[in-house]
Amino acid sequence: MALAIEARDLRRTYRTRTGWLNPRRVEIDAVRGVDLDVRRGELFGLLGPNGAGKTTTIKMLNTLLIPSSGSARVCGFDVVSQTREVRRRIGYVFGGDRGLYDRLSALDNLRYFAELYGVPAARQKRRIGELLELVGLTGRERERVEGYSRGMRQRLHIARGLLHEPEVLFLDEPSIGVDPVAARELRNTVAGLAATGTTVLLTTHYMAEAEELCDRIAVIAGGEIQALGTADELKHHAEGRRVLEVQAFGVSDSQLAGIDVLPGVRESSVDIVGTAQVLTVQSDATVDVQADVLRLLDGVRLGRVTARQPTLEDAYVAIVGRSPVEVAA
């Protein structure tokens, strides 16, 4: 099968200084030998915690960073020696508010970037109309971008990245900071790209987004790919576990540390959902830790307590929580 992206032993090392009185040079390995194949027309997800190497990998693939070693090709062209050919065939959309002109309308923004990307004048009007329709901004295109919501801005970012009809589109956390309704609209937009035959490489922190959209998903941690497969295949990494969720109000670090060392507990984490904490505890399937967890939470105001089967998010936690040796095994 034809590949849109292929990377072999891709590495990136940063050299920096540390210390003030006695500064010394240190090397930081941001990416430590990534091997990756993305098929043409595939919607491929790259997941990982902050500092895992996601954005560095993306920037090497789209020619914004030069790899320290290894090789990568996009649409058959080398990202170092054939930069111009790669850039003609890719689009890049990043999360956040940068990259648009607030005092211009969406239409004027797209006209400006169409000129910048070398879209032929005879093609611009039709192409801009197609993209406004694709991202759901038809009828709002003459409004200034400064009045747009975060979700509308992100959809305009996607339209901008598609102006020159790239074969490969890099989406780097496009839904970050976007409200749930806008995030759903963004997902619909991204899903629509697959129908056009565009290859999409998506980085995200949202497991539901990755599971809904991506044909395959790679999990990166510590600068290395720790697992790769479909969402269902990745869930096998959480097999043999049970998951306990406890809605709580005021779990302390010492209580969380106590839960971590309970017999049978694999991982635990706390997320803030609204005004409450949601404590998630993964344990061996043969060990029921509910009574011990609730005992350690004595004095904490509790809400719903739920035992459930592992999800993709649980598998992700299991994958990034292991050492590279354990994952490789």
Rank of each mutant, 00 (worst) to 15 (best):
residue 238 A to R: 00
residue 40 R to D: 15
residue 28 I to V: 15
residue 214 C to Y: 03
residue 151 G to P: 03
residue 178 V to W: 00
residue 309 Q to R: 12
residue 32 R to F: 11
residue 157 H to G: 13
residue 223 G to Q: 04
residue 231 A to P: 08
residue 311 T to L: 07
residue 326 E to F: 07
residue 289 V to M: 12
residue 280 T to M: 02
residue 148 Y to M: 06
residue 37 D to A: 13
residue 318 A to W: 00
residue 172 D to F: 03
residue 299 G to D: 10
residue 46 L to R: 00
residue 318 A to G: 11
residue 67 P to A: 14
residue 63 T to K: 05
residue 320 V to A: 03
residue 179 D to V: 04
residue 173 E to M: 09
residue 300 V to W: 03
residue 207 M to A: 05
residue 249 F to M: 00
residue 309 Q to C: 10
residue 327 V to N: 14
residue 104 L to T: 07
residue 156 L to S: 07
residue 82 Q to H: 06
residue 145 V to A: 13
residue 176 I to C: 08
residue 157 H to M: 14
residue 138 T to C: 14
residue 302 L to Y: 04
residue 168 V to S: 05
residue 204 T to W: 01
residue 255 Q to G: 06
residue 283 S to L: 10
residue 247 Q to D: 01
residue 110 L to V: 08
residue 20 W to R: 11
residue 78 D to L: 04
residue 120 P to Q: 14
residue 120 P to W: 14
residue 169 L to R: 02
residue 91 G to K: 00
residue 278 V to F: 01
residue 291 A to Q: 12
residue 101 Y to C: 10
residue 192 G to L: 12
residue 203 T to G: 07
residue 140 R to G: 10
residue 86 V to L: 11
residue 169 L to Y: 03
residue 48 G to L: 08
residue 241 R to G: 01
residue 202 L to W: 11
residue 29 D to A: 12
residue 305 V to C: 01
residue 153 R to L: 15
residue 302 L to F: 08
residue 116 L to M: 09
residue 108 D to N: 07
residue 293 V to K: 01
residue 306 T to Y: 04
residue 262 L to H: 06
residue 122 A to I: 08
residue 205 H to Q: 15
residue 291 A to D: 15
residue 7 A to Q: 03
residue 267 E to G: 06
residue 313 E to C: 04
residue 150 R to F: 07
residue 214 C to W: 01
residue 74 V to L: 06
residue 265 V to P: 06
residue 316 Y to G: 04
residue 67 P to S: 13
residue 195 A to D: 15
residue 230 T to I: 00
